[in-house]
Design a protein around this nucleic acid. Structure first.
Ligand SMILES: [Mn+2]
Ligand SMILES: [Mn+2]
Ligand SMILES: [Mn+2]
Ligand SMILES: [Mn+2]
Lengths: 223, 223
DNA sequence: TATATAATTTAGCCATGCCTAAATTAATTT
DNA sequence: AAATTAATTTAGGCATGGCTAAATTATATA
């Protein structure tokens, strides 16, 4: 069995790989809030275990074995989030922190029981895909909200799950996955978005919009 | 926050104190499956934290602060066992191992949510008392099954929870807490017990009987 | 009471996973 | 091309929580 730290490194490498491409020692260290030298040390250990590939100064890549483990941990995390949300009523801004600890600790049996209880779900409370038990991820394509223009309507697909305060903020506007809204105005000079959610007008800052991903985009005439 | 190892030591000292009285370094080491020198080391750490009292060669005792933490962890463990049993259908011989890991990791919020979901229970699936959130333990007195005599009837109060194979064995006879049985015969020379459970005759060895505790004892005439 | 035995503690070692500071290598600028 | 800057790696340390082997202390036995 891997240590919790090793599992967290693998998971983080996977996530950075997803969005970025090349994963440098520095990226990884920053993401995990450790010093670059600590990341170098763990990368070496993971390399001897053949879970990552790494050439000095060239960045890290997961091997197939490493990717399998990363997806396993991500599956635990997202199943736990959804389970805590649905079965125990933990608010959506609280599930991430709890799952972050539990993901390393639950058995395969518990994983399977939660999966069955939830009816083999494919998305967590923040809209992120839950890998199936074979590590297959079905991710519908989505677009960052900052790429939207005036008059476009869309549906929230996914939001970042690791900032509790941000999630509470989004929750106050009902900006959950599945919620539809229309862009009324994008202020110039990298300004905020004014949107219409179910008849309510709401202003969303750019920094917040970066954490919201949408799909089902349609051009709509001003109502 | 204490480390997982420190929490396990405190919990173990509490449990050994409960049944035994004096807790020696050796007892503790054997119980935790570590070497006596390792136990000595942790005892020193716990002493500097004022969680235990210890004089060289004299055994350990929990301080009030140490006892509070021990009970907190035991509460987590037993609530988790019951939760896994009732909410996720984990069999009673599987809950202990799972709870052993989760008990160190759940938040106070999750503890409270499980407690509420379960209706503020006072006993875990093995009949052990669940300390309330203030650390108060209500333990009904019970007697080891080995102290029973021919013709006595009783009700199972509690069974040891840490041996999975033993629990499956007991389960095969429905020897759960709350199950009534009558002693038909105690074989001489430290022999096995023949008992009657709901009309079925079952033979229980002495080693097994040591792990069963009963109450509601009544003298009954042979039926 | 002296000695043998058992329990406990001390001393010194190892792996993990973090740290800081220094050295090295790569990339950018002039 | 040389020099500056930035990223990465190496070297050496620290805390935790195990271990073994040796020394110490307490207890039992003769
Ligand atoms: Mn799993
Ligand atoms: Mn999530
Ligand atoms: Mn608690
Ligand atoms: Mn139990």
């Amino acid at each position: 069995m891997l240590t919790q730290a090793a599992e967290d490194y693998l998971k983080s490498i996977y996530k950075l790989q997803e969005k970025g491409g090349k994963v440098s020692t520095g990226n990884l260290a920053e993401y995990l809030d450790v010093k670059p030298s600590s990341a170098t040390g763990m990368i070496k250990k993971l390399k001897t275990m053949k879970l990552v590939s790494h050439e000095r100064y060239q960045g890290v890549t997961l091997t197939d074995a490493g990717k399998t483990i990363a997806l396993e941990i991500i599956r635990h995390h997202r199943l736990l989030e959804l389970y805590l949300f649905k079965a125990l009523g933990v608010p959506w801004d609280g599930v991430h922190e709890e799952a972050e600890k539990l993901e390393h600790v639950i058995s395969e049996d518990m994983e399977a029981r939660m999966d069955a209880f939830l009816g083999y779900p494919t998305e967590d409370p923040h809209g992120s895909p839950i890998p199936d038990k074979n590590g297959v991820v079905l991710k519908a394509p989505s677009v960052q909200m900052t790429d939207l223009n005036n008059g476009q309507s869309c549906v929230v697909a996914e939001v970042s799950d690791d900032d509790s305060a941000l999630l509470r903020h989004l929750g106050s506007f009902s900006l959950y996955p599945g919620t539809a809204f229309r862009v009324i105005e994008v202020a110039p000079f990298e300004g905020p978005f004014t949107i219409d959610i179910a008849g309510q007008q709401v202003v969303i800052g750019r920094e917040v919009a970066k954490h919201i991903f949408v799909n089902n985009i349609e051009e709509t005439d001003n109502v």
